[in-house]
Design a protein around this nucleic acid. Structure first.
Lengths: 110, 110
DNA sequence: ATATATGGTAAGTTTGCGCTTACGGTAAGT
DNA sequence: ACTTACCGTAAGCGCAAACTTACCATATAT
């Protein structure tokens, strides 16, 4: 069968995908508590520091976190703008899902 | 290095993971439009029907959709309760992230 | 200058996951 | 009864992605 794979197109899909990985969620939740340098993020996590660096890149491309240099340390933090955009998108996403549900629930006499 | 892999623990994490896959998002959005039998869900998607069945299982375990039999047809639809729970969880999730951001933004003189 | 701390990236390995094919099982139509 | 439609699951395959090790670059400390 010809399988032209499904792709992650829009930015929200990318964000979904970014948080789909358990390690990245762990990283994101750490940053939710406070901004941190890469070393400190890696501390406690069950993966190597380079692995963390790679995850940080994904989260950054998803606009969920941002970086700013502090001497030799690269400090990462939550990206307010990106998170806000994601939240607004999801609000609509769920609302539409629930609205559709109601539409069909009314048709059912149950 | 000893790598005790990270796991998807709580139900919200599972939901995140469920929607992290592009095909599953496509399926979910189809069901958002209306309840559908498996055959109809598979129709138009670039993957086989069994693949769709497997995705449906994941979405179901994430409490994002529910099934009810209709003769020989298995009709899937949005799981209102699960979606509501997910929405509430995410609202808090984002809010906490943004609150933390503000806390640390105020410390910065910029 | 040398050493130490920090971290990004390249290259290669492994493993998990999404997929297909094959099969079996039930429901409805003829 | 048998044929057709519908669908879940098992087994196996292939690939993308998460991981490791190794290396290099820059910043700070001594």
């Amino acid at each position: 069968m010809k399988t032209e794979k499904m792709k992650n197109t829009n930015s929200h899909a990318i964000a979904f995908n970014a948080l789909g990985d358990p390690t990245r969620r762990a990283i994101f939740e750490k940053l939710r508590a406070s901004p941190l340098a890469v070393v400190d993020i890696a501390k406690g996590l069950p993966v190597s520091r380079p692995a963390v660096s790679q995850h940080l890149r994904v989260l950054k491309e998803a606009k969920l976190i941002s970086i700013h240099q502090h001497g030799a340390r690269n400090v990462y933090q939550i990206d307010q703008e990106g998170v806000l955009a994601m939240r607004n998108y999801l609000d609509k996403f769920w609302d539409e899902a629930l609205m559709a549900f109601k539409t069909f629930a009314e048709r059912t006499t149950k």
